[in-house]
Each structure stands twice: as structure tokens, then as C-alpha cells.
Amino acid sequence: MIKRDALLKPLPLVSIAILSIPIFVGYLWVFMRTFTTRMYGMSPVGELTLRNWTFIVTDPLLWHLTLNTFVLAMGLTVGIVLVSCSAAYPLSRMSFPGRKGFLALTLVLHAFPSVVLLIAIFVVLNYLSRVPLIGRGLPLIGGVGYNTLGGVILVSIAFLLPLGVWLMKGFFDNISWDLERAALIDGCSRFRTWRQILVPQIRPGIAALGIFAFMHGWSSFIIPYTFMVDQQTAVISTYLNLLASGEQLMDYGVVSAVALFQLVPILAFYVFTQKYLLTIFGGGMKGGT
């Protein structure tokens, strides 16, 4: 028996390792390709070179796009956290007509494929961009209309909201009522209770949702690709697509290097924050209507 247990114990790890091999080989290939001029299967041909990485110093556009990507990811993070936290509180704590229906509807929306809505959203954004100032006159994000970073952030927030609201509602549900009552008796208003007593309790949830949203925003493709057509407003993922589908012959070395360039920050970010990310599963599961 003991012998069998000893054999079985590493089994999950071994199976995960085996299943991960194709993915790992893919990344390894990309990594090696950035330092070579040509690959034959998994082995580099010719001398190792840094030529593929020269864009870091020679291509100012890429840095501009990195900034765009960062603004998109940060905008999504801040927006989703703010809206989810404030929407989840009443959904968790107050009873009002339509509460259950709203919760069910958001869940359905979450299951709805976002691609289907792209055309409709284009119409809305196009309309929005005709609104003066907020349409396309804002600094940094450009506005909230079509072909602006702000518009893409707005749409991304909307698509991620069901997840965020449900997740935050789960965290609010876990806070004891007594805490809120104590604050009420001490003299807090409902809003102050939310801001000063309850929100500090769900910081792990906010961290988790924030990290998730940031990573989601950093690597999102379909929404930026559809709603931002200028090179000036593009993000790294759409730039990658441009490089890979351009008219000239595709340079796999440069494509790999840019891909890796996009990957590195998110990888580092993940390593440092995975502890918080895991609380999504710790706190988000207990929620109910």
C-alpha cells in the first residue's frame, strides 16, 4: 500500500508536466527564435544575434503602443474595481425590486459571446464620438468614442462587469451584518460604512479583481482590434497582428521578440501577485443570490 501511495503521489504533477510540454515547447521556440535569424525545427541555424531586439531602441512607436496598452489595462482595472465595488454592495446588502433579476441578467450577459455585439457596439461608439469633448477630446485616453482608447476601455469594462460584480458580491456576502450594524450605531451613514468599514474588509478581493483585470486588459485583442484602427491608438497585441499579417514577408524573429516583449511584464506581474489572484477562488465561490 505504502509503495502504491508513493507512486501515485507525483502522478498529478507528472501528468500536468506532460500536458504542458506542447505549450512549453512553443514558448521555448519563440524565446530561441528571437535570438536567431533562422530556426530548423527546434534548433537555431547560424549565429546567435540581437538583431530582432533592436526595435526596443529604434522603434519609438512601440514604446508609444506600450504606453497605450498600459493605459488600457490601468483604465480597465480602475474602472472595473470602482464600478464592481459600488454595484456589488447594494446587490449584496439591500433589497430592492429587480435585484434578483438583475443578478440573473448579468450572469446571462457574462455567458453571451461578446463577438456578437461588436457591430452594435461600433454603432454606439460611433455615435458617442460625435458628442463634443468626451467623444474624442480627452487627454491620454482620447475620449470615449470610436477609435479612442477611452472607448475601448469603456467597452472592456462593460464586458468584464458581470464577472466583477458577482465576484465582489461574493466578498460582500461574507462580511458579517454585525459589522455594518456596529458602524451604523456608531454613527456612520450607509455610504461611509461602505467606504470606511466594508471596503477595507474586501481588499483581497479588490486586489484579485484588479490583477485579473489588468492582465485581461494588457493582453486583450479583439476589442482594441475592432474599435481602434489608427496606428497611434493601437496596442501591442494589435501591433503584433499587424506585423504578422502585413504585406511584406513576415519576420518571425521580430514578431517573436515583440510577443515576448508583451509577455515579460505580465509574467513578472503574475509571479508577484498570484497569491492575491488565488483569493478569487477563495472568496468568490461562496456567493449566492
Binding site: S176, D178, L179, R181, A183, I185, D186, G187, C188, P200
Partner: peptide
Amino acid sequence: PKERDIGMVFQSYALYPHMNAYQNIVFS
């Protein structure tokens, strides 16, 4: 509740977890 001049003690204590004892006591 705040106008009623009452103090309440809960079964779960309901101390504010992110504050220390002093901050809890003087919060009102």
C-alpha cells in the same frame, strides 16, 4: 440609530478588523 444615544455589543464582537483597539473604541 446614531440619534438614539445607544451602545451595542454583538455576539461576534463586530470589531472593525482593519483598525486597532484604540481606533475601534474612539470611532464613534
